[in-house]
């Protein structure tokens, strides 16, 4: 299957406030609030370095996180990216 690439929201578009184990994300473009769990904020942060696909994202996150099994991680991240795109927080390139 193709591994689509996504781009993060522009700088300043999102306001992210940790709330205990959750994070509340306010999207200034849509005026919507999204409550997410880890690793969503980490994905958004990693994507800010530039648009990329799930495989590249896994590599970026591996630098700061302990991801077990590269292949699995990319598949899981692809799902999360798809969810973030449905929320409008990231956009397919």
């Amino acid at each position: 299957m193709a591994d689509p690439a996504y781009r993060a929201a522009g700088e300043g578009a999102l306001r992210i406030e940790p709330l205990g184990e959750l994070a509340a994300i306010f999207d200034r473009r849509s005026q919507q609030t999204h409550l997410v769990t880890q690793p969503m904020p980490e994905i958004l942060a990693a994507l800010a370095a530039g648009p990329c696909d799930a495989t590249t994202l896994a590599a970026r996150l591996a630098d700061s996180f302990d991801l077990d099994g590269e292949g699995d991680a990319a598949a899981i991240l692809a799902e999360r990216l798809d969810e973030l795109a449905a929320m409008g927080l990231v956009e397919p390139v």
């Binding site: 709330l19 205990g20 184990e21 959750l22 509340a24 609030t33 409550l35």
Partner: peptide
């Protein structure tokens, strides 16, 4: 209850949050 749960409950209890 945690901050996240209180947040969710109060958004549901607010008519003008959005």
């Amino acid at each position: 209850i945690g901050e996240g749960e209180a947040f969710v409950r109060l958004t549901e209890a607010s008519t003008n949050y959005i």
